[in-house]
């Protein structure tokens, strides 16, 4: 039992953003309950790989973040630290970032699909070799798509009077 709890806790530590630290125990408990339900369904024959535990922790964490967001919307309470793991403490900067984000998405709509996917992965933090692997194309081709797609994005933002 201790072993399983430690494994689940390690998985939750990877999924849990800092602002949910106080909920980490609850998230771990929910993951455990899900594992136990699976054990029950399989009459105790289920085994849990590390990747399975991470997936379970990810799902429960996402549910918790959405729950908190809904609560915030319903109560009208503004809590910037809850808004997003990467939310900054400055509301003005945060508002500007959101506005720029919306413009980025509008610009992406106008970029051809192959470049749009490459730029999206680039904006999500993927390095070019990983993008190439995901798009099943040579690295040079992926690099080219990212380069041209980012140029399209910059040109579109510039046309809207935005300079990132």
């Amino acid at each position: 039992m201790d072993f399983l709890i430690r494994k689940v806790a390690a998985a939750v530590r990877r999924s849990c953003p800092p602002y949910l630290a106080s909920q980490a125990e609850d998230i771990a408990q929910e993951v455990l309950v899900q594992l136990l339900r699976k054990l029950e369904r399989t009459e105790g024959k289920a085994t849990f790989s590390s990747i399975y535990l991470l997936k379970a922790a990810h799902g429960v964490t996402v549910d918790e973040i959405r729950r908190r967001s809904r609560r915030r919307e319903q109560t009208g309470l503004e809590d910037q630290m809850e808004a997003h793991p990467r939310a900054g403490p400055d509301p003005e900067q945060e508002a500007m970032a959101r506005s720029l984000g919306r413009q980025i998405r509008r610009c992406l709509e106008g970029i051809i699909a192959s470049r749009r996917v490459a730029v999206t992965l680039h904006l999500l933090g993927c390095p070019v070799p990983e993008i190439a692997q995901r798009l099943d194309c040579p690295v040079k081709s992926a690099d080219n798509r990212v380069y041209r797609g980012m140029k399209d994005l910059r040109d579109c933002l510039a046309a809207k009077g935005l300079t990132p």
Partner: peptide, 26 residues
């Protein structure tokens, strides 16, 4: 860095009707 930050700056809300399941995103 600014573009990446802005790209993920929206707060979380309920999933849209055309959003994939969390498992599919995983």
């Amino acid at each position: 860095a600014r573009l990446r930050e802005a790209f993920s700056a929206e707060p979380w809300g309920a999933a849209g009707t055309d959003c994939p399941e969390v498992g599919e995103l995983w």
